[in-house]
Design a protein around this nucleic acid. Sequence first.
DNA 1: ACATCATATATCCATATGTATATGCGTTGG
DNA 2: CCAACGCATATACATATGGATATATGATGT
Lengths: 115, 115
Amino acid sequence: MARAATTSDAFNAVAEPRRREILDVLAGGERPVNDLVDLLDLAQPHVSRHLRVLRDVGVVDVRGEGRQRLYRLNPQALKPIHDWVAGYRHLWEERLDALEDVLEDLKDQENQEKD
Amino acid sequence: MARAATTSDAFNAVAEPRRREILDVLAGGERPVNDLVDLLDLAQPHVSRHLRVLRDVGVVDVRGEGRQRLYRLNPQALKPIHDWVAGYRHLWEERLDALEDVLEDLKDQENQEKD
DNA sequence: ACATCATATATCCATATGTATATGCGTTGG
DNA sequence: CCAACGCATATACATATGGATATATGATGT
């Protein structure tokens, strides 16, 4: 079997750095394709192709405005990703907490030495 | 040019559902390869290959224990993903807030009608 | 109707992928 | 010292990919 399609889910769609860049721009508001072409320094067909993938997964919505196509972010589609990583968050924060504990112990030791 | 390698960063590594399953298991603690084979119903070479990808990206660490190889989650490697999606979180929560506002307005209207 | 602008799509290539099977290789136990 | 075990890797294959170029589609203004 081949690799999973980038259009299979948000995880795959977002795995591509260029597409994350596109989303980062769209986070600032609705944009026509040519804006993205200029801002991201990509060829127009590439941008259109990436947008197609993002649309298939539901991360962006399109709206026809005259002869332009305005793309808008649909943030809700990113929620599954957030929910998944959020489940791991306490695991790396535990380490920070442990580090803080060590630092506090060191402080206590200093104070004891002062007395 | 071809697609970015899955070994290039955590985003790509995690795009594969099987690898997320592996991480979900490892979140519960260190495991030898065969545990994953049994739990995930995957062939051993597949598990080994996925683990290799995850290791290359730094999401898991290995430790030799006798003739077993114990894999452990390295949650910190997932932080970039969390940080990226977290930036979008307010965007989908705004909608919920807006919904709450509407609901509160409705409540206020009800109260006014009561008076 | 026609020319023009804004996008989308078709086709090409090189490559990375996931799955499968078979095999290599180090560790342990007798 | 050798067999069994645990795991990693080599190879084969079908496929999806991203990039590039060229072309089609679709709306607009005249």
